[in-house]
């Protein structure tokens, strides 16, 4: 578990203050407060439907908070007009749950499109960059495939390649391991770790796959469906044994190890 080594840096990359998320009058989560430090692999975890992906969508500006604010390196993202967020957005790379590759473009074109839009690079340089990014995720040679022609795991990796197109400071990954077989999922974890170590990116991951969580995370937030707020923050390995919140411990132990929480017990 390389991530467990203490590389806690000093500067907060992302700061979330008193964030309340709502769909209309329905409050999904309230009063979230956490920080993501540079080079963290930060996990957003919690039960199904608790608002993990919603939190991610708030972080990348696809939804506006009902209350509270999100800061990137001290700059207030929430207070910035959505039309003026270009400088923030260039620092993000996002991989969506299903990959969300643009289906009418080949893999190479998918990775190239952000580069064409945001840089002045000549076509040759873009081509080189694209094949480099695709080879980083183990997809060299697949440049001219369309998303419909490749497997689910490959789509996710292609999604990561596209997310990395602009060399972002922060990678957001939405359920990278979901729907993958254990080996592909493991390879994806290794990929994430190596990208973090070699590129120095900060990685924010939405997932509930415990194996992945313990393998790569060094920081996390647990969203509690019952109380509709954060259950705990911190290193998931520590939380498993030392969290003050029994729900968090139970979650991280897959419901086992604590006698009072049998799967069949009536809540």
């Amino acid at each position: 578990m390389p991530a467990a080594t203490d590389t806690r840096p000093t500067k907060a990359k992302i700061t979330v203050r008193d964030l309340t998320m709502a769909y209309g009058s329905f409050v999904v989560m309230r009063d979230l407060n956490f920080e993501v430090a540079e080079k963290d692999i930060f996990i957003i975890m919690g039960g199904s439907g608790c608002g993990k992906s919603t939190l991610l969508r708030h972080l990348i500006g696809l939804r506006e908070p009902a209350k509270g604010s999100i800061l990137y390196e001290g700059e207030n993202f929430t207070a910035t007009d959505p039309d003026d967020r270009a400088s923030f957005i260039r620092r993000f790379g996002v991989m969506y749950q299903s990959g969300a590759l643009w289906s009418s473009l080949t893999l190479a074109e998918n990775v190239a499109l952000p580069l064409e839009e945001h840089t002045e690079l000549p076509p040759g340089a873009i081509r080189d960059l694209v094949s480099y990014k695709l080879s980083l995720v183990g997809l060299s040679g697949y440049d001219d495939y369309y998303p419909a022609q490749i497997s689910g795991g490959m789509k996710k990796r292609a999604g990561i390649a596209r997310a990395m197109a602009l060399d972002p400071d922060i990678l957001f990954l939405d359920e990278p391991g979901a729907g993958l077989d254990p080996l592909s999922s493991r390879r994806l974890d290794d990929l994430i770790l190596r990208l973090r170590d070699s590129l120095g990116s900060t990685v924010v991951i939405v997932t509930h796959e415990l194996a992945s969580i313990f393998a790569i995370a060094n920081n996390s937030i647990f969203l509690d469906t019952e109380t509709r707020t954060q259950g705990a923050t911190g290193n998931p390995t520590d939380l498993r044994s030392h969290s003050e919140n029994p729900t968090v411990r139970t979650f991280l132990r897959r419901g086992g190890a604590e006698p009072e929480s049998s799967l069949l017990s009536t809540p």
Binding site: L62, A86, I89, S98, A100, W102, S103, E117
Partner: peptide, 17 residues
């Protein structure tokens, strides 16, 4: 519609399109 369902439109937004 299918681009929206597949989050492709969100992906465009987050790349600043």
């Amino acid at each position: 519609g299918s681009m929206k369902a597949n989050e492709e439109i969100d992906a465009l937004k987050t790349f600043g399109f």
